[in-house]
Simulated assay, not measured.
Amino acid sequence: MDSGLRERKKQKTRAAIRRAGRRIAAAHGWEAATIERIAAEAEVSPSTVVRYFPVREDILLTDENDEHLEALLRARPAGEEPLESLRAVTVEAIGAALAADPEELRVRARLMADTPAVRARFTETTAETGRRLARALADRTGRAPDDLEVRVFAAAVLGALREAVLYWAERGLAEDLTALLHRTLDTLRTGPTLPARP
């Protein structure tokens, strides 16, 4: 089997496992989405599920977007403020996910809000995404990838976006998520505004 065909087969298997896990979780909750049940739904063996997803929560949370997100960030105009660059690429990525499969994004958000193990793993995967984006930001700003300011900034933006998604889920997914993301990033720039004095 040539390498291209082998890779397509792997991607197809990975996608089938993800779909199965998310379908079961949406219908019955995350605890019901056992490795065995996911394997049966995806028509693969339990060992295949574990091989592709050693951490069960990654079935729900991971996708192939980190590399794409980094490429988008590197392609932003030179001289653009880092916050605006990150705003452009993250809002575009989440908007694309909403357009492609809004129900999948809603399921993921609900489970992140309601399931401590999923929320904890989401925090870990967000940190991994932050490290990738920090490398791109470092290159764009002429700093080292382990520069404190670069690391803090990337982590702050992604942590803020994580909170926006949780806020959205905790309030019944009723608000406009894109507007919430812009509001979140505006808050990073200005901080909370003080209430008007009587």
Results as ranks from 00 to 15, higher is better:
residue 121 R to M: 12
residue 87 R to N: 02
residue 119 R to M: 14
residue 54 P to M: 10
residue 48 T to D: 08
residue 69 L to V: 09
residue 96 A to W: 05
residue 137 L to C: 08
residue 52 Y to H: 15
residue 38 I to Q: 02
residue 156 A to F: 09
residue 124 E to I: 13
residue 120 A to I: 09
residue 118 V to Q: 09
residue 124 E to R: 12
residue 125 T to V: 15
residue 111 L to E: 01
residue 113 A to P: 10
residue 116 P to V: 12
residue 198 P to I: 07
residue 38 I to G: 03
residue 121 R to W: 12
residue 30 W to H: 01
residue 66 D to Y: 08
residue 167 Y to G: 08
residue 155 A to F: 14
residue 136 A to W: 06
residue 107 V to S: 01
residue 25 A to Q: 03
residue 138 A to V: 13
residue 125 T to G: 00
residue 55 V to K: 06
residue 23 R to E: 15
residue 149 E to P: 00
residue 137 L to T: 03
residue 14 R to H: 09
residue 55 V to T: 13
residue 157 V to S: 05
residue 131 R to F: 11
residue 17 I to A: 02
residue 37 R to N: 07
residue 110 R to L: 08
residue 46 P to C: 11
residue 149 E to V: 10
residue 190 T to L: 15
residue 68 H to Q: 11
residue 46 P to I: 13
residue 27 A to E: 13
residue 151 R to W: 07
residue 120 A to R: 14
residue 119 R to A: 15
residue 91 V to Q: 05
residue 178 T to P: 00
residue 160 A to S: 12
residue 97 A to V: 00
residue 197 R to W: 11
residue 182 H to Q: 09
residue 135 R to G: 05
residue 180 L to R: 12
residue 58 D to Y: 06
residue 73 L to S: 06
residue 22 R to I: 14
residue 67 E to A: 15
residue 165 V to L: 15
residue 24 I to S: 00
residue 110 R to Q: 06
residue 184 T to R: 02
residue 70 E to S: 11
residue 175 E to P: 06
residue 54 P to L: 11
residue 93 A to E: 03
residue 76 R to M: 15
residue 175 E to W: 13
residue 58 D to N: 07
residue 6 R to G: 12
residue 140 R to N: 11
residue 182 H to P: 06
residue 98 L to P: 03
residue 161 L to G: 02
residue 180 L to G: 09
residue 171 R to V: 08
residue 196 A to K: 01
residue 148 L to D: 05
residue 56 R to D: 00
residue 17 I to W: 01
residue 194 L to M: 06
residue 154 A to W: 09
residue 18 R to Q: 14
residue 151 R to Q: 15
residue 81 E to I: 03
residue 111 L to R: 00
residue 97 A to W: 01
residue 198 P to S: 12
residue 31 E to Y: 00
residue 191 G to A: 04
residue 60 L to R: 01
residue 116 P to T: 10
residue 160 A to L: 02
residue 170 E to T: 11
residue 50 V to K: 14
residue 147 D to A: 11
residue 29 G to L: 04
residue 198 P to M: 02
residue 35 I to S: 00
residue 57 E to F: 03
residue 177 L to F: 04
residue 125 T to R: 14
residue 164 A to M: 01
residue 168 W to K: 08
residue 33 A to I: 02
residue 63 D to M: 03
residue 35 I to L: 08
residue 95 G to C: 06
residue 104 E to A: 12
residue 157 V to I: 12
residue 99 A to P: 02
residue 134 A to M: 05
residue 131 R to G: 15
residue 12 K to Y: 07
residue 100 A to W: 05
residue 66 D to T: 14
residue 132 R to W: 09
residue 13 T to A: 09
residue 89 V to H: 02
